[in-house]
Design a protein around this nucleic acid. Structure first.
Lengths: 94, 94, 94, 94
DNA sequence: ACTCCAATACTTTAGC
DNA sequence: GCTAAAGTATTGGAGT
């Protein structure tokens, strides 16, 4: 993180304020940039669905397939977490 | 992506089915890859908010600011005008 | 829904405005009342968890149990919905 | 809910376990009942919003108004002040 | 335009 | 008290 340049004309408080302002602006702009990227990817996804649809696939069914695959992936973590909870409840874990 | 080989043993219909299956798989995998990227960016955004919070900024206000910057001026005026009307109606303003 | 009383002193437009105002206020108050009730129930739920905890039960494990039971209930609807989607995709429905 | 009968054949430990089980079941069912009630009220709220919408009101603005009414004045001023500061810093105001 | 569903954001709660 | 996670509410987008 760059230090705030303290110009002669500024009081210490003004410098602090200026610094916070710049810092805030930097955070906001970083987030906005990331959100643009995210939006671009979301648009890409839409395009792929549209292309699939153009090739005769049922988009809703595709979404279901993708969702189920993701659930399968998530489920293991989930199951492990549940198991842990139970073992803890039964005093088998710390 | 390999093309669907039309083996001697396959009927034309089987080939078509195999092709559709491969094509579907390809679409699904492209989407899954894109969703992973999207997730990564979403995580980055979270990190930035966390960092901002660690520097003393109010995350909720930051979100508001970012939302407002995204709205165009007309839309914003529109919303504010409706809100004002309602607040008036409910005696929340002058 | 009660009609808006049109007082002699009011113009038609004022009456309309007054009516809308009263109507808005009525809607808002109905919602606020419902939200209070909802809050009260949420508090009751908290109390039950606290009581269970006081009787030596593990709250997190209880939440897990409740969530799983709810999933079982939801799952049937979900499975039916998925089945429908597939049947549709395969041209077996509508 | 029946109390746990302590049958001759049961050891004290078994009885304790049975009792705990029944007690747990009772807690879980109480919570599930309460959650159903909560859900019913949430649905009622949705209905009221839908009705308001059908009468030409802007649901989003209504939600905002309700949220603001819930905040106490101090808190509201606080939030507005932070927001203003941030908007200033980003050149969105004066 | 409107409904429905998925995604996001916010709030609350549990554990450290 | 703070961080991490769950649950809940709100928003936006896709399909009809």
């Amino acid at each position: 993180m760059p230090t705030a340049a303290l110009r002669k004309e500024e009081s210490v408080e003004q410098a602090a304020t200026t610094f916070a302002k710049d810092q805030l602006r930097a955070f906001v702009e970083r987030i906005e940039r990331l959100e643009e990227e995210k939006k671009a990817i979301a648009d890409d996804i839409k395009d792929v669905f549209a292309e699939a649809k153009g090739n005769g696939f049922d988009v809703k069914a595709m979404r279901t397939v993708i969702r189920l695959r993701k659930q399968d992936a998530d489920e293991r973590r989930e199951q492990e977490s549940i198991l842990e909870t139970y073992m803890h409840a039964l005093g088998m874990l710390a």
